[in-house]
């Protein structure tokens, strides 16, 4: 084993153990994309898993309803625009239809309703072309010490930060595969220090072709 191999192996061990300071932990986390380093981490997880029997079991409340509500939100109620469109179609006044069409925004390619499990927070995301607009629909932004950070989760890739959110945020964006998930986590002001979500996931929603 070369000196570099040994350094990598120790970094993997310390990452699994959890002793690394925040910055080094973030560096190690980024290296998980390297298959060699990921394999070292998996090896250390297996090696140290011999300590797992020492974690005693503890009664756990049934959190499944909240978890399911967050992962599998009900289909969103028809939007204001859809309601208007129905009204527009049934209205006989050509003038009203023209006025309505002028008000209709460009139909987005993808939309997502990013919902908290318990009412509170909701962001809506609309992706048109290469621009995504994320708007706060209900709930409020966190105080000055914290921030809402938006993440894109596609398949088995690690979440990718799309940046911090304000009341309305515009994000340049290439079209994602369908079924990608947008998630909002609570992070310290300035965003996650590790490049991965560190705080709780506050809201989740799937991007759907509209």
């Amino acid at each position: 084993m070369t000196a570099t191999d040994q350094d990598d192996d120790l970094l993997a061990a310390e990452y699994v153990l959890g002793t690394l300071p925040l910055e080094d932990r973030a560096l190690a986390e980024r290296r998980l994309r390297e298959p060699g380093f990921a394999a070292r981490v998996a090896e250390w997880e297996r090696r140290l898993s011999g300590l797992n029997p020492e974690f005693a079991e503890a009664p756990a409340p049934d959190l499944m309803p909240a978890i399911e509500a967050r992962l599998f939100p009900q289909a969103p109620a028809p939007s204001r625009w859809q309601g208007l469109r129905l009204w527009g179609a049934s209205a006989l006044s050509a003038l009203a239809v023209v006025a309505y069409l002028a008000l209709t925004p460009v139909q987005p390619d993808f939309t997502a309703v990013i919902l908290a499990e318990t009412g509170g927070l909701e962001y809506d995301a609309q992706l048109s072309g290469r621009q995504m607009v994320v708007s706060l629909k209900s709930g409020s932004l966190p105080g000055p010490d914290q921030a809402h950070e938006l993440w894109l989760i596609v398949g088995d890739a690690a979440p990718v930060s799309l940046g911090l959110l304000g009341a309305e945020t515009r994000i340049a964006f290439a079209a994602p595969p369908e079924g990608a998930i947008l998630a909002v986590s609570l992070e310290p002001a300035g965003g996650s220090p590790t490049g991965q979500p560190t705080g709780p996931v506050l809201a989740l929603g799937a991007l759907k072709r509209s």
């Binding site: 503890a58 756990a60 409340p61 959190l63 499944m64 909240a66 978890i67 967050r70 992962l71 989760i153 998930i181 709780p200 996931v201 989740l204």
Partner: peptide
């Protein structure tokens, strides 16, 4: 811990 458990199972699904 309960807060974290909810988070952990969300990640288990994902």
């Amino acid at each position: 811990a309960e807060d974290a458990l909810q988070e952990v199972f969300t990640r288990v699904w994902l």
